[in-house]
Design a protein around this nucleic acid. Structure first.
Length: 285
DNA sequence: CCCCAGGCACCTC
DNA sequence: GAGGTGCATGGG
C-alpha cells in the first residue's frame, strides 16, 4: 500500500481502512466523506479540507496540522503516547510497520450503531450494513457532483426490527432498535464523557447489545477514552500468546491488567497490536 | 456439508 | 462471577 503520512503524522488511508471506523467513505480515489459537511481530498498531493453547505463549496482549506487534528479528534502526539508505554518490542515493531495509524474520535451515534452490528460479524460486512442503513434512512448530501448519504440521526433511524433484518443484520436487529430508542429518549454521550472510565463502561453496557467489548470500542473510538482497550478476538490472541501474565479468565480482569501494563493510552496499544496481528506482522496461532 | 466472523443476552450454578 | 448455549447471515 502506498503510504502518505501527513505533516501531522497521520496516515489517513491507513487509519480510515484500519477497521476502527465505519463512518468514512472513499468517494473517488482520494476522497473521504465524514458524517458532517466536511470532506478531504489529496488531489495534487495537497491535502485540503473541503467544507460545503447545501451542496455549495464554501471553503477549501489546506490541511493545517491543527485542523486535521481537530476535525479527526486527535489531541495527542504519537510520540508522546508511545513514550508512556513500557519497553515493548512488539509495540515498537507494530509502530515501525504502521506509523501514522491514529485513533479517531468519530461521532457517537454512527459509531455506536456500527459496533452494535459487530458481534460475530466480519469487518467488511459491518461496513456494508452500516452503509446500507445510511442508504435507507440517511439524508442525501451533494458533494462536487456526487450524491452521498449521511448516516441517519437517532430520530431519522426509525427502523423496525423486521426492516433491519431485511438488510441482513440478523439477530443484531433488536440491538439497534432498542439502543436507538434509548438514545432518542436521552441516553447521550455527554453524561458518559463526564464519567470515569470504568463507570462509563458500565453506563454503556446498560444499552441492549452493548457488552464489554462493544462498550470499549464506542468509548475509545467516539468518546475520547484512550485508556479503553477493546479485547476482541485478535487482542485476546495477542494477550494469550505474548502477554500471558496479563491474561485472566474474565474480560474485566484482563482489561484491568492490560491497562495496568500499558497505561492511560491502552487503546493505542491495543490498536497497534490488533492491527499488527490482523495483518500478520505479529504471528498469532 | 462444514467452519468461522471485532460477542451478546440469557440461563444456570 | 464464572461457565455454557443459542444466535442470523454470508463467505471460504
Amino acid at each position: 500500500m502506498e503510504r502518505h503520512v501527513l505533516e501531522a503524522g497521520i496516515d489517513l488511508e491507513l487509519t480510515m481502512t484500519s477497521g476502527q471506523t465505519f463512518n468514512w467513505n472513499r468517494v473517488e480515489g482520494d476522497f473521504f466523506e465524514g458524517g458532517k459537511e466536511k470532506f478531504y481530498t489529496f488531489k495534487k498531493d495537497e491535502p485540503l479540507i473541503v467544507e460545503q453547505k447545501d451542496g455549495e463549496i464554501i471553503a477549501e482549506t489546506p490541511l493545517s496540522r491543527e485542523e486535521v487534528e481537530k476535525t479527526l479528534g486527535i489531541r495527542k502526539d504519537l510520540d508522546e503516547i508511545f513514550e508512556t508505554f513500557p519497553e515493548d518490542e512488539r509495540l515498537e515493531k507494530a509502530r515501525r510497520e504502521f506509523s501514522g495509524l491514529r485513533v479517531l474520535e468519530d461521532e457517537f451515534f454512527p459509531t455506536l450503531v456500527g459496533y452494535l452490528l459487530s458481534p460475530q460479524n466480519r469487518i467488511q460486512r459491518i461496513k456494508k450494513l452500516h452503509d446500507e442503513i445510511a442508504e435507507r434512512w440517511g439524508e442525501t448530501v451533494q458533494f462536487n457532483g456526487y450524491t452521498l448519504r449521511k448516516f441517519p440521526s437517532p430520530e431519522q433511524l426509525e427502523a423496525t426490527e423486521e426492516e433491519l433484518r431485511e438488510i441482513g443484520t440478523g439477530y443484531r436487529a433488536p440491538y439497534v432498535v432498542e439502543s436507538t430508542q434509548k438514545v432518542r429518549e436521552g441516553f447521550g454521550p455527554e453524561k458518559v464523557r463526564s464519567m470515569e472510565y470504568e463507570e462509563a463502561r458500565e453506563e454503556m453496557k446498560t444499552l441492549h447489545g452493548v457488552g464489554d467489548k462493544v462498550a470499549d470500542c464506542v468509548l475509545l473510538f467516539s468518546l475520547g477514552f484512550l485508556e479503553a482497550a477493546p479485547l476482541d478476538t485478535w487482542a485476546k490472541k495477542v494477550v494469550e500468546q505474548f502477554y500471558p501474565e496479563i491474561h485472566a479468565s474474565g474480560y474485566e480482569e484482563t482489561s484491568r491488567n492490560f491497562r495496568k501494563r500499558f497505561g492511560n493510552y491502552s487503546g493505542y496499544a491495543q490498536e497497534y497490536l490488533f492491527h499488527a496481528a490482523r495483518n500478520e506482522v505479529l504471528e498469532v496461532d
